[in-house]
Simulated scan of single mutants.
Amino acid sequence: MAILLVEDLSKAGLLIAVNPCGSSRKEPKLYLTVPLREFFAKKGFDTHKGALGEEFFVNHLRNFGLCYLKGKRGEKTADFKVGRWVIEVGGESKGRYQKPDYTAVDGLITGKRRVLLFLFGLVY
């Protein structure tokens, strides 16, 4: 029943299911679309900044072979793989342990292998 509900919400454009990379098990991560996240924020729900960044990223790159990286329990892995690139979505301190190809960062400070998160909003 829950699987059917998730499938229907995905078809309606309210949820985005992202599958794990190269895994035979299909345990998708579920992300809210931007309008649904905004709805919950206006209703007083706490909007976690990290989740909001990942949802923004997923909303804009879901049609480009996006999958999430799944490590072993307790293992620090980067968040996503898009094509051949491994990308960590997060703040300035992210990416040191995960060893991604690129880190999508908040704010306006870039550096070595750091891409501004909002630039992924221009991908279409």
Rank of each mutant, 00 (worst) to 15 (best):
D8W: 00
L9F: 12
L9C: 09
K11M: 07
G13F: 01
L14A: 04
L14Y: 04
L15A: 02
V18C: 03
P20K: 00
G22A: 10
K26Q: 12
K26F: 12
E27Q: 13
E27I: 09
P28G: 02
K29W: 06
Y31A: 00
Y31I: 10
Y31W: 14
L32I: 02
P35V: 07
P35I: 07
R37L: 11
E38Y: 13
F39G: 03
K43E: 13
G44D: 08
G44E: 05
F45S: 02
F45Y: 15
T47D: 10
K49M: 10
K49H: 04
K49F: 13
G50P: 00
G53K: 04
E54M: 11
E55V: 12
F56G: 00
V58F: 01
V58W: 05
N59S: 14
H60V: 00
R62G: 03
R62C: 06
R62N: 05
F64A: 08
L66V: 04
Y68F: 14
L69N: 11
G71S: 13
G74Y: 13
K76R: 12
A78G: 05
F80M: 07
G83Y: 13
R84Q: 14
E88S: 05
E88A: 02
V89N: 00
G90F: 01
G91D: 09
E92G: 05
K94A: 10
K94S: 10
G95D: 09
R96K: 14
P100H: 04
P100N: 11
Y102F: 15
T103E: 03
T103R: 04
T103C: 10
A104Q: 05
V105Y: 04
D106Q: 03
G107W: 03
L108K: 07
R113A: 09
R113W: 10
R114Y: 08
